[in-house]
Amino acid sequence: MPYWLHIVLWVLAIYIVISVLLFYLQDYFLFKPEKLPKDFQFLYENQVVEEYNLEARDGAIINGLHFKTKNPKGVVLYLKGNSKSIKGWGKFAVDFTRLGYDVIMVDYRGFGKSIGKRSQKNIKHDLQYVYNKIRERVQEKYIILYGRSLGSGFATKLASMNHPKLLILDAPYYSLTKVTGRYMPFMPLSVILKYPMPTFKWLQYVNCPVHIIHGTNDKLIPFKSSVKLSQIKPNLTRLYPIIGGGHKNLNTFEAYHEVMEQIITENKKHIDLSTTSIGVKHSSKK
């Protein structure tokens, strides 16, 4: 056997082994769950919260929290990122309860107190089940979907299949395949990735207003991914850059909270376009 062919076969064998390992170990790399004991008590200062458990069709248990306000204007279904559990994420509910909205947060399978075999399909079914439960008590015109990082894809999928009031995406990815491809450009991720999460495809079927918030200094999910997403349904979408914001610190920026209040309260100023230059075209030299 020629020496060069021997080298090629060895490289091919290593490539295949790495691909197989990535296929079976990708959950370990993608998800950073925090597991909680069944008797763990959720406590938050100045928040009224109720814990609940829902049983999925395959017997999995989905644990969640309901942050309550007096005379709520609606409800926000908050889909969190890929780390920890709702124990830590719960402190962000105040950004919505202070504006008069109830908040529902859930832990994905394997996170917190939630149990069950995790897959993209199962998580989508779980979240639709949660959405259906909310819809039994609240009209869809009062439901806001909020997706943070990993949750942005699932929130977009839910919005594409339902009719919520708003879809808010916080640091969303174009697709999870694109994000992971930045770190493993030579691997066949389109084949082996069990969580491709094609947000860009699902967004095409969303018919409610879409608000995208993204830090311009996000190193994990580049700001340009939100720029691309905002161009899919431009008539329904508005992009809010948080100048200097990273991936995990947007809540530390005053601009983020100003944007959230503007979106949630729908505090928009009407502009009489007939008094503007909207119809004026620059002349071109011939």
Rank of each mutant, 00 (worst) to 15 (best):
V206Y: 04
S160Y: 11
V20F: 12
I14L: 08
K219Q: 15
I123Q: 05
Y146E: 03
N207S: 14
V259H: 02
L79R: 03
V138A: 11
K91H: 15
Y174A: 14
V130G: 04
K285D: 11
T199V: 02
Y205I: 01
L5V: 06
W10Q: 15
P164D: 07
P209I: 07
K281F: 09
G112P: 02
I61L: 13
L273V: 01
V49W: 00
M1S: 12
L36T: 11
M184R: 05
G181N: 14
M105A: 04
Y173G: 09
M1K: 13
Y3A: 14
L220A: 05
V106L: 07
V191G: 03
G88W: 08
N162W: 04
L25K: 13
K141A: 04
P222H: 04
K141I: 07
F200R: 09
A171H: 09
G74T: 01
Y205R: 14
I192R: 03
C208D: 01
F92S: 14
A93D: 00
S19D: 15
F96E: 01
F186E: 08
P2I: 11
H247K: 13
P222N: 01
T199H: 03
D27N: 11
F42G: 03
A60F: 08
K165H: 04
Y15T: 15
T199P: 00
I123C: 00
K224A: 02
H163L: 07
I134D: 02
K285R: 03
P164Y: 10
Y15I: 02
V259F: 05
T156H: 13
I144P: 13
F154E: 07
T180C: 02
T180N: 05
Y131N: 04
P198R: 10
I86R: 01
V130L: 15
G245M: 13
L43F: 13
T237C: 09
L273M: 12
K133T: 11
L203P: 05
K32D: 12
G64N: 11
A159M: 03
I18L: 13
L176T: 03
I144N: 04
